[in-house]
Amino acid sequence: MTDKTATPEQMDGPVLKVTDLTQQVNLEADTLTILQGVSLEINRGESVAIVGRSGSGKTTLLGLLAGLDTPSHGEVELEGRVISRLSEDERAALRARRIGFVFQSFQLLPALTALENVMLPLELAGSERADGKARELLERVGLGDRLRHTPRQLSGGEQQRVAIARAFASEPAILFADEPTGNLDNRTGRSISDLLMDLNHEQGTTLVMVTHDEQLAGRCQRRFSIEAGIVTEPGAEAHTEVVN
């Protein structure tokens, strides 16, 4: 369960492969299509931005890619496993080992200190040295002197740093970030995106980020646009797997 090395088969091919993904919500009168026929591939170590306006479906896409939800049609393959076919518990186990999250609203637990928040995924994964590792990570994000502070006592930027430390704690293969700078001012946002990029680089993680911040998107290797549930990858023939 603590095995963090990918198998040979995981090493080859795309780390994330999406085929004809459709998400619909049944309303009283009719069916609302949020995502329609999305297909794309993301390779190991890449950084990818998904940009779009509010309500374009980007957060829904992120949830499906991370296995937080299951699609109406289509498949999501993560490191060769079709996660939409896994049970909830299998997906949870996969998340615990291979996936990290950073949210727009930080999602720290208010009752826990910074240190305890970072320890949480490590403990869930059964790590023996959760405490030490969490301390190291908090040092790395520049909060070594704020270990015992609760989220309430931290600024927004500091909270997001804790969230980033937590996201990298389980050494994930893929990190999903949902508008990571959305709640922060420009300057803090920049330092947070720097941190995110640096850590991503250091740990060789694949980064999939949803954002409407063009500047942040510009720092990613690839960039997908989403509009009215349809995903395109403008100007990138080599990687594409686009559209309807």
Partner: peptide, 19 residues
């Protein structure tokens, strides 16, 4: 509310239902 939030977050972070 806090407990549910925590539960949801724990699940997001990969806690199995049974656990």
């Amino acid at each position: 509310r806090d407990r549910q939030r925590e539960g949801a977050l724990l699940r997001t972070l990969g806690a199995r239902q049974a656990l």
